[in-house]
Design a protein around this nucleic acid. Sequence first.
DNA 1: ATAAAACTTGAACGATCACTCAAGATAAAC
DNA 2: GTTTATCTTGAGTGATCGTTCAAGTTTTAT
Lengths: 193, 193
Amino acid sequence: MSRPAKFDRDLVLERAMQAFWDQGYCSTSVATLTQTTQLNPGSIYAAFESKQGLFLATLDHYGKRSVEEITQTVNSAETPLEGIRELFRQLATNVKKPKSERSCFLVNTVLDASRHNAMVRERVNHYFDLIESVFRNALASAQNNGELAIDKNPRTLATFIMTTIWGLRVLLVTGAGQDKVESVLDQLFILLD
Amino acid sequence: MSRPAKFDRDLVLERAMQAFWDQGYCSTSVATLTQTTQLNPGSIYAAFESKQGLFLATLDHYGKRSVEEITQTVNSAETPLEGIRELFRQLATNVKKPKSERSCFLVNTVLDASRHNAMVRERVNHYFDLIESVFRNALASAQNNGELAIDKNPRTLATFIMTTIWGLRVLLVTGAGQDKVESVLDQLFILLD
DNA sequence: ATAAAACTTGAACGATCACTCAAGATAAAC
DNA sequence: GTTTATCTTGAGTGATCGTTCAAGTTTTAT
């Protein structure tokens, strides 16, 4: 016996996420959020408790989708190792895309808001862990296939892959060209052979 | 025929830098800056024009010192390649240090303020370029010494080293332990052999 | 001494911040 | 149709934001 919320929660999260992603937590005012989400302050606070509550919800929105997309890309290739390579090739094509300077929402957040907020840090680390396990599993499969040498360590390589992704995100923000990005991919792929 | 400023500019820059580094540009208010620098608002604005002006000055303060320290570490080892390895070993010891979660001021800045401010971006990129050239020169020297295989490309490797540093900074912020950090170093060192 | 120039002080400015809440609107339950 | 519970609206809250500036202070040059 109550009135359901009129707005589409996923649409609101998507729009709020774009705002936070573009401008960062601190520079995104509630006034901006009311514009982009087309929700009044009251509705935002009724649904998400606070600006931080909305931010955490957008983090989940982004995190879940990232994990899905990465899993999809890595696991839908012909072989596990090829899946990982394909993921990096896709990442590299971001150079040309218009909003590549936004980097990754999780990476931006971990270097910004997470350092003084345990809740944010834990959530970001959670999604990083999930993503790393996708790589670790793929590498283990590759070893079983004989695609990856038996003396390589999937755990070590997965950590290194994560580090390379993080580094690549920064590289893209610096405005690096195609050549630099491909340099990085080449070096990483050497280690995966 | 004028009155000289009473405050120590370097000390003020150091204190302001610590504040910006700890909390980020946006979260560091001028009120905070007046406390940490022990300067009144008027003095700050007389000396640095604006909050952003002070920030840019702290960026230079940090950037110049970083370049000096990296150059020193890389060039004072017995061989160029050993210098690069030594730098990474030092970076790795940051895991234990209390403020390791602050990452690198330049990296934090490039993912935060730089994306919507060309002046900040150019300045950060400038220092990144200087640092990368330290590695490129060291690698070229290593090749002349016969320490680095002749088929390796110093330019490509220097870019990869920068990417690894950036990735390592993120890794440290996630709270990774010694083991993960050493994993990354091991993989990087393979590529330098 | 005096004048000139620059620095220091700190109260005050308008703008904007995150957030609240009373009033009105709306859907489900009966 | 009435009740009930919740959502929506948007003006308004006090706090804090970056910045300014007039008044007072201090140093140098003459």
